[in-house]
């Protein structure tokens, strides 16, 4: 279990007009600002347009005796736009949310929802039975149930008293 969630650097807070707490923060901010500007495409401006930002849906991992359960919050997806793959003990959930053209001609007041691709990979803590993996998509949450392989299940060892 060595998965650390990627936190997007908040470049907007690096704007010098904002209060900077300490010298260390200031240096960090200088770095972020420079790289942020390097990665910023020329036609974009303002927050929310830097390439460093992205869609990283929250992923949870649960366990019971029989199986591992991975949950990902991916609201508003189409079933066919979600891909799940298992490779070498790593489960990868990826997909793409396409732009809805219904309101393409309308005026946009707020656009906070992410569009485009996401990919999350989670390291599984034990062997699973790859043929019995099941996935369900309900209320915008993807739930992948991975039954544990026989050798990974906890075993009760009976003690005989003589």
């Amino acid at each position: 279990m060595t998965l650390t969630r990627w936190h997007k650097p908040n470049l907007w807070n690096a704007v010098p007009a904002r209060r900077i707490a300490s010298l260390r923060d200031e240096v960090d901010n200088l770095f972020n600002l420079t790289f942020g500007r390097l990665l910023q495409s020329p036609q974009d401006s303002g927050p929310g347009t830097q390439l460093l930002e992205g869609w990283f849906p929250a992923v949870d991992l649960f366990e019971d005796k029989e199986s591992l359960v991975v949950r990902a919050e991916v609201p508003g997806m189409k079933k066919e736009d979600i891909e799940i793959s298992l490779h070498d003990g790593y489960l990868t959930v990826s997909g793409e949310r396409k732009q809805d053209q219904t309101y393409a001609a309308a005026e946009t007041y707020r656009s906070e929802r992410w569009l485009g691709r996401f990919q999350r990979t989670i390291s599984l803590p034990c062997q699973v039975d790859a043929d019995k993996i099941k996935a369900a998509y309900t209320d915008g949450i993807l739930t992948v149930t991975l039954p544990k392989a026989e050798e990974a299940k906890p075993k009760q060892i009976p003690i005989t008293v003589k």
């Binding site: 991916v74 005026e107 946009t108």
Partner: peptide
């Protein structure tokens, strides 16, 4: 929740992301 808000001549449309809510 994250929202998108659109306006057309006859209506506003609000989309909000509420994963796990039915």
């Amino acid at each position: 929740p994250r929202v998108n808000i659109f306006e057309t001549p006859d209506r506003y449309v609000l989309e909000a992301e509420l994963p796990g809510v039915n």
